[in-house]
């Protein structure tokens, strides 16, 4: 029976989802976070991301999640992908990137379980917004200057995609 369910005849959970669900990476809140965002859409699940930023890099990423196994795995994968990246690169992590990294998601889970990357993006935006409020509107020195400014959610990214 195990071989039936584990070899992928049951399409529910990929081995990677199960692995991240069992051992979620980087879970937990960051008390002195620079940016925080919560997404609670869809089915009652809650995704909350924390970012600690240093020199325009995600020095630390943490999260809290209340949700199904897929939601937990998405948070774990998102945090794993994001930590250590520059803000610009981290903002390029989309839900689709997370899905691919997990080896695919069950179709019925796609829209409500896969919101971790959105929450991360919003947490980075929260940091940029707070920075702007504090009067620091100067783009950081980097090739991706414009990305280091606060962007309301529906401003298109460099490829013209709206989030």
């Amino acid at each position: 029976m195990n071989s039936l369910t584990k070899e992928g005849i049951c399409p529910m959970y990929s081995p990677k989802i199960i692995e991240h669900f069992q051992n979620p990476r980087k879970a937990g809140k960051i008390p002195d976070a620079d940016g925080i965002a919560t997404i609670a859409e869809g089915c009652g699940d809650i995704f909350r991301f924390y970012v600690k930023i240093r020199n325009n890099r995600l020095e630390k990423v943490g999260y809290e999640v209340k949700g199904c196994p897929v939601a937990i795995a998405c948070c774990s994968m998102t945090a794993t992908l994001a930590e250590g990246k520059s803000l610009a690169d981290a903002m390029m992590i989309t839900n689709e990137v997370v899905e691919k990294a997990l080896g695919g998601l069950p179709p019925e889970k796609k829209h409500c379980s896969n919101l971790a990357a959105d929450a991360l993006y919003e947490a980075i935006q929260d940091y940029l917004y707070k920075r702007a409020l504090a009067g620091n509107t100067a783009p950081a020195a980097s090739g991706d200057d414009w990305r280091y400014m606060y962007l309301p959610r529906d401003v298109p990214d460099s490829k013209g995609n709206r989030r």
Binding site: Q22, C43, C68, P69, I72, E108, K109, K110, H111
Partner: peptide, 25 residues
């Protein structure tokens, strides 16, 4: 569902009150 899978992975089969199979939970 997380409890269900967590127990299942330890060889314990239970049922969860709500299955979010439809996505609308």
């Amino acid at each position: 569902e997380s409890l269900l899978l967590g127990l299942d992975l330890q060889g314990i089969a239970v049922s969860s009150g709500s299955a979010c199979s439809t996505g609308s939970e």
